[in-house]
């Protein structure tokens, strides 16, 4: 499967506010070809080896990248929304320090022919790791550019062999209040029910841009970024990128995500980045690029589907995106 290389900048991606920043904003060398379907018969050299920290070996670079400047390692790893470790953005970096990501099991279950519970290393082994440089747009109107390391979720799902009943995929984060202070019951709590749950439609989950990440900046994912395994869906708001996943379940009905449960009128199932559909409490038309847009610069325009319209808009043809926000 090939992610088309746009011949020219599509006009929707040009915005006066940042023309001078990035003149050529497009996906480059977006070659996912040869990856999907390559699972059986991997040679040992291609097999991913996942250490518990440090550099990741054998990562294929440049499979999907963008012209945008990559956000600094410091910003990516110290400014995190990961409510399990506290609601302040600096909380996860300090509270997740001792989080144990080994041993770690991942259950793939539900409407599939080959359900299984994997040890993390076994789960990751069949897949070739690649770097994916994606824009990440938070629902709070800020954004980053992050060099993830991971593999397409589609490969995992194909391996599980979904049955015809599988229409959606439901993901669940670890539930461990002992390690995750945000999950501890308190007088008021964080306002979310635990464990964190997210979901995708099966075709969204199978899309070549959707990945499971095990690393950033060529290294093993830091705990605060969702170690050891997280979802990345670049055309959706950041909260769809569920962290520290322990279960992937193929289901027939649309899952109820944690944020839908907390505030259904504010967070829909789709959560596609859309500058024309505002969050009820703030505008989504613009965003602040972390580390680039300084104290005295205007926010930049948010792009439809976070700039990935060319690749994903067809998933939603005929849908009222105002209704299915």
């Amino acid at each position: 499967m090939l992610i088309k290389k746009p011949a020219e900048i599509s006009s929707s991606e040009i915005t006066p506010a940042h023309i001078y920043h990035e003149r050529r904003r497009f996906l480059r060398d977006a070659i996912a070809a040869g990856i999907i379907g390559a699972v059986p018969g991997l040679t040992p050299a291609e097999a991913a080896v996942l250490p518990s920290s440090g550099k990741l070996a054998g990562v294929r670079k440049g499979s999907v990248t963008i012209v945008d400047k990559v956000t600094s390692y410091k910003d990516v790893t110290t400014y995190n929304n990961f409510y399990e470790f506290g609601t302040d953005k600096s909380d996860p970096a300090s509270n997740a320090r001792g989080f144990r990501t080994r041993p770690w099991t991942i259950a793939v279950e539900g409407a599939c022919r080959r359900p299984a519970v994997y040890q993390l290393e076994d789960f990751v082994r069949p897949y070739a790791l690649e770097e994916r440089i994606y824009r990440m747009r938070c629902v709070e109107a800020w954004s980053m550019v992050i060099p993830w390391v991971g593999f397409p979720l589609a490969e995992v799902l194909k391996r599980a062999e979904p049955t015809s009943r599988a229409k959606f995929v439901e993901f669940t984060t670890l539930h461990d209040p002992e390690q995750m202070p945000g999950q501890r019951p308190g007088l008021l709590g964080t306002g979310l029910d635990w464990p964190y749950v997210e979901g995708l439609r099966l075709d969204e989950a199978m899309h070549p841009l959707t990945i499971l990440a095990v690393g950033v900046f060529g290294e093993v994912l830091p705990n605060q970024n969702g170690a050891p395994l997280r979802l990345v869906v670049p055309w959706k708001y950041g909260f769809k990128g569920i962290k520290s996943i322990v279960r992937i379940r193929l289901v027939e009905r649309q899952p109820l995500s944690s944020w839908m449960q907390a505030a259904l009128h504010e967070y829909g199932f789709y959560a596609n980045v859309n500058p024309r559909v505002d969050h009820p409490r703030w505008s989504q038309a613009r965003e602040r690029r972390i580390g680039e847009d300084g104290l005295f610069s205007a926010k930049r325009e948010t792009l439809m589907f976070n700039g990935y319209a060319e690749q994903v808009a067809s998933l939603y043809t005929g849908m009222d995106l105002r209704k299915y926000y």
């Binding site: 409510y83 609601t87 709070e140 308190g186 007088l187 008021l188 709590g189 964080t190 306002g191 979310l192 944020w259 907390a262 505030a263 409490r281």
Partner: peptide, 9 residues
């Protein structure tokens, strides 16, 4: 109260 996302503490 109205501006916080979910944590009203």
């Amino acid at each position: 109260l109205w501006l916080v996302k979910s944590d009203i503490r």
